[in-house]
Design a protein around this nucleic acid. Structure first.
Lengths: 220, 220
DNA sequence: AAAATAAATTAGGTTAAACTAAAAAATAAT
DNA sequence: ATTATTTTTTAGTTTAACCTAATTTATTTT
């Protein structure tokens, strides 16, 4: 089964919307995600349906198939491995990698990805803390909760972000809340949902509810 | 100036034919190089002419412009840097890299190439011994002659091959004539042009004229 | 120099992926 | 339960890159 670059991008978007966003995936959702027009999405859904990576009934809805999930995970695997390469080996900042990884993920060569994986020492998580599927598509993800949902005095480690826009990542970098940081919730303000945390047993940090709900923590 | 992947491939082919093959570049030559049809080439030449990377007068001929040369060299630079990466870091054999590098060379990111160059320690030659243009397109190539043209008792170092088809590269690997090998010409048979060489002061090797004329040597 | 051959280009068609505008179906509101 | 609104799909274009077949230009040959 061969997918074009465009097809891979659609499938990846559908996978993310299906898994992360729970409820059924709409044409408009996909258009927003891919930054394209709904009419283009309808076109592509028909094609993806014919290739049996999704089950598609027009006006009704779609469901990603096991084959589709497998292919999407391979693309995600490639994307995240390249991100590790860019950060670990080429010293990219974690907010600079996405665009380039978006291109690299479409390079076709099984050997390349296997070798890259070995070279990087079989990493299990990318620089944003997201799990890297193995060659069979298996993902071992750690149970994580939003910082927002933690209790006072609970501690843990920042492992990922929900919103990975460059602006947000830069903000985190600036205030010193990097992936891997060990944190403890010192206080929560009921009124506005903001929280106060201790980072690495040194620095105290205030953050709004908006920020805190975008940070994922592996609780101890 | 932005070139598409196809445009980059055509320009690269035109550059190679212009520089390596001397005489004027024909539509048919390009078609053969790119494995496409002459009609498609005509189409593309018009487009490349409009973008001013070549000077083109139909039925008459073409010439690559300084801008075209610069852009072609950037693509070649990327291709050869990726080849170094694949061989040095990911342990690819030198006959396995071309296809993958052909894809990687089109990734667009100046930062990526600069970082990769630094990571590889600013290599000057790729695994086939071809020179890597620097960020400004400057190439420092070593003066090389074909093994075929060497005199008896002359010695040197294998630095490149003309024909880099996988079959030829595999053959070289098998007989132990790798890039970097130090050699000395022991004998030349006038009758058929074949040569006998000593490799690394150890192994004696016979090769046909065809093979010898495809091996480039930096003479001592 | 005219005829034959070879090379290059144009004309017209295909496919993938996008788009706008219009139509159809599903959902929500009165 | 009609009407209004939103969502989705279809119809018809556009662009890039290819193709075949036909034509035009250039080059050889006689």
């Amino acid at each position: 089964m061969e997918l074009t670059t465009a097809e891979e991008n659609y499938l990846k978007a559908i996978y993310h919307l299906s898994v992360e966003g729970k409820k059924s995936v709409s044409t408009n959702d996909i258009a927003a995600e891919i930054r394209t027009k709904p009419a283009s999405v309808s076109d592509m859904l028909r094609k993806l349906g014919e290739k049996e990576v999704i089950q598609y009934r027009k006006y009704y809805g779609l469901q990603i198939t096991p084959l589709g999930i497998q292919l999407a995970l391979q693309t995600i695997r490639k994307h995240r491995l390249w991100e590790v390469f860019l950060v670990d080996k080429l010293n990219f900042a974690w907010d600079e990698v996405h665009e380039v990884a978006e291109q690299l993920e479409h390079i076709q060569s099984l050997l390349l990805i296997e070798r890259l994986d070995a070279y990087l020492n079989y990493p299990k998580f990318d620089p944003h803390g997201d799990p890297i599927p193995d060659a069979f598509g298996d993902v071992r993800s750690r149970p994580r909760i939003a910082l927002q949902e933690m209790e006072i005095d609970q501690s843990g480690q920042i492992v990922a972000v929900k919103d990975s826009s460059p602006a947000f990542l830069r903000y985190l970098d600036k205030v010193g809340a990097y992936i891997g940081a060990r944190i403890k919730v010192l206080d929560k303000v009921e009124f506005d949902g903001s929280v106060e945390i201790l980072v690495d047993q040194k620095k105290t940090l205030f953050m709004s509810k908006d920020v805190a709900s975008n940070i994922l923590v592996l609780t101890a």
